[in-house]
């Protein structure tokens, strides 16, 4: 299979002095979709922010390799230009900066000389149309006053334009109505291909009906407690995380210190 697209080994992460990720290992091949599920506060967004190089998230142990190269020393913007994309769980508003201006600037950064300013408008229009986004969207300010659904479409719009190699989609399905879920999932599926790897964070099995994962991981309290095929998601839907939470407490009881 060659070098994995993303290879995380024994990753420990500290946020504001508190350890949130406690030894995560995970390997995503090109073309694969990995779903990451887990209870609130288990560390899913911490992992996505860490992968994107958020300065508040401090890697204390372990390695993150992207296409075989160590990411830890790279700044956020260099990671992005290298092809890592994070669809935010809570995208930030930036007043006064229009969507079109923002995406154009991002594309210039990502593609450099290869960016085709003349094609940009057309490309953006087409991408917006396929995500069911109104044309007026281009002149609105980034995430400013966007509805939950608009924010998520906007994230996928950027993904479509920036053509990443690794996309981390952090709860892109939350806040979407049923129709929007379909449009957005179709949008993501169109981007799937042999060179793109996806880490799909979600709480709901429903999304996985649209975007079929190759592997499902369960993250509880900063550790991956189980990995399996897509049927694992169905099992979680039925039983919840209770079995794993218990396992965790038992573990604590049986292994003192």
């Amino acid at each position: 299979m060659g070098t994995p697209l993303l290879e995380i080994t024994g990753l420990h992460v500290l946020v504001e002095g508190k350890e949130i990720l406690k030894g995560i290992s995970l390997s995503v091949e090109k073309g694969q979709v990995h779903a990451l599920m887990g209870p609130n506060g288990s560390g899913k967004s911490t992992l996505s922010n860490t992968l994107m190089g958020h300065p508040k998230y401090q890697v204390t142990q372990g390695k993150i390799l992207f296409q075989g190269e160590d990411l830890t020393a790279l700044k956020t913007d260099a990671r992005a230009r290298g092809g890592i994309f994070l669809a935010f769980q809570y995208p930030t508003a930036i007043q006064g900066v229009s969507v079109a201006n923002f995406i154009r600037t991002a594309m210039k950064a990502r593609f450099g000389e290869k960016f085709q300013p003349k094609e940009f408008r057309k490309e953006l229009k087409a991408a917006m149309a396929s995500l069911g986004v109104d044309e007026s969207f281009a002149t609105r300010y980034v995430n400013d006053g966007f509805s939950g659904g608009e924010k998520k479409r906007h994230e996928i719009l950027q993904m479509a334009m920036l053509k990443p190699l690794l996309a981390i989609l952090d709860e892109t399905d939350s806040g979407l109505d049923i129709d929007a879920l379909r449009t957005v999932s179709e949008g993501i599926n169109r981007l799937r291909g042999p060179s793109l790897g996806i880490l799909l964070i979600t709480h709901y099995q429903r999304l996985l009906n649209y975007i079929e994962p190759d592997v499902v991981h369960v993250l509880v309290d900063g550790r991956i407690v189980r990995s399996g095929g897509k049927e694992l998601a169905l099992e979680l839907e039925a039983k919840g995380y209770a079995p794993y939470e218990t396992a965790k407490t038992e573990q604590k009881e049986t292994v003192p210190q």
Binding site: M52, T76, V97
Partner: peptide, 23 residues
């Protein structure tokens, strides 16, 4: 962080935020 996560270097991200601020 949001702008840098789209590939903009720190200085450019800051410029865009300030332009938006003046807008």
């Amino acid at each position: 962080f949001y702008l840098m996560s789209r590939g903009l270097p720190h200085l450019e991200a800051e410029q865009l935020i300030v332009e938006g601020f003046f807008d």
